[in-house]
Design a protein around this nucleic acid. Structure first.
Lengths: 208, 208
DNA sequence: AAAATACCCGACCAATCGGTCAATATCGGC
DNA sequence: GCCGATATTGACCGATTGGTCGGGTATTTT
């Protein structure tokens, strides 16, 4: 009565959320009609309004769960062990892989970041950022205090550089693939390996 | 009769294009109505259809001129002189500054890149990419052949890293600004200086 | 069984959408 | 003054939009 009922109760709601997430991740807010969502969910449009008072609330709910899920997925990438260098290597690869594994969530949240004038839910996006950033910065600081990394660079700047490299790769992958000199468009692991290697040669103290 | 008349003739058209560019850079395609464009341009909606057959064509025209202008602005950043290291330093700063100087154009073109399923004008975006990339790759290759840079890295990968760093900074600037450990959100020149310095320490051959 | 409650839908609403059209205003060339 | 062409407009169109409403149909609770 409780568990099965709860699942059945939430089924309709979740079907709507799933359909909305799919559509909202492909097209912008105004480009997705409530009719399309209802059709995708296999229910009637009026039924949506039984669960959500209006379109904005539904969109916000989608963004909330998407941000939450994305945050969880990305935070998994942080977990690592061994030397700071290895942690960085693993983080880069796992982070990019997490992005590529959930392209819908990433596009959904990132679109919200880029949209102007309407900070519908920037807080969600910022949360995901905060976790990534603080975790990365901590790792870099640890490397500095351990002497594995140089002391004369800003950890936050390197974190930005690393995150940006992955996000940029995710965003412009389709375009990068069209350029002959680029061989890593379909090899994210190789891309991150190269990126980190280049960074490390600059971060590791010179052998002198 | 030719020059002045041509300007007067094109005035209405350009007013529409300017208004459309402004609105399309803030909100997505479906979120901008022809009425809003007409209102912004100070003319009637029907008058727009005297210059453009439909909304898609107008949007395409806006994207075409925006892409062209952005391409020109960005290409200016490439021009440089002196050592390869100096060229890279100047390029990074000028490129980011160009992005920040024309936020509307950047958002407009970049939104088109991120939108799914509808490659309305990906060609335009790709053109801008191609120029940047080939120029940067050439500079890096030159540095390699001159011995100013290492030979064991992929120039295209470094070019991606550098461009991505700037684009990412441009996109997430508002978010970055909210994090205490980040001091460079309002100092793009300092950001690029730090980025390039980190990269160079990895690219320059070790003193051995 | 009856009442209550959650769920679901076809039909409908006013508003707005992109787009059309006929009519007018403007203007340079004659 | 007249005329053809270009500019410009208000009124209008069918379609679609987000959202409402009344009434159904299960499913529980009592």
């Amino acid at each position: 009565m409780d568990s099965t009922l709860a699942m059945v109760e939430g089924e309709g709601r979740q079907r709507i959320l799933a359909a909305a997430e799919k559509l909202f991740s492909d097209k912008a807010f105004d480009a997705v009609s409530m009719n399309a969502i209802a059709c995708e969910a296999g229910i009637s449009k009026a039924n949506i309004y039984h669960y959500f008072p209006n379109k904005d609330t539904l969109y916000l709910a989608v963004l909330r769960v998407a941000s939450h899920n994305l945050r969880a997925v990305l935070n998994e990438a942080v977990s690592a062990h061994g030397s700071v260098l290895d942690v960085l290597r693993h983080f880069a690869r796992n982070h990019l892989q997490a992005l590529l594994n959930r392209p819908q969530l990433v596009r959904l949240v990132w679109r919200e970041i880029l949209e102007r004038g309407a900070p519908r839910a920037q807080e969600f996006a910022e949360q995901g950022f905060a976790d990534m950033f603080s975790a990365l910065v901590d790792v870099l600081k640890l490397g500095q205090s351990r002497g594995e990394l140089r002391h004369d660079f800003d950890p936050a700047l390197v974190a930005t550089l690393l995150l940006g490299a992955n996000v940029f790769f995710f965003q412009s992958r389709d375009i990068l693939r069209h350029y002959p000199p680029i061989t890593f468009a379909d090899d994210p692991a190789g891309y991150d390996a190269g990126i980190v290697e280049i960074l490390l040669r600059g971060l590791v103290p010179a052998p002198s």
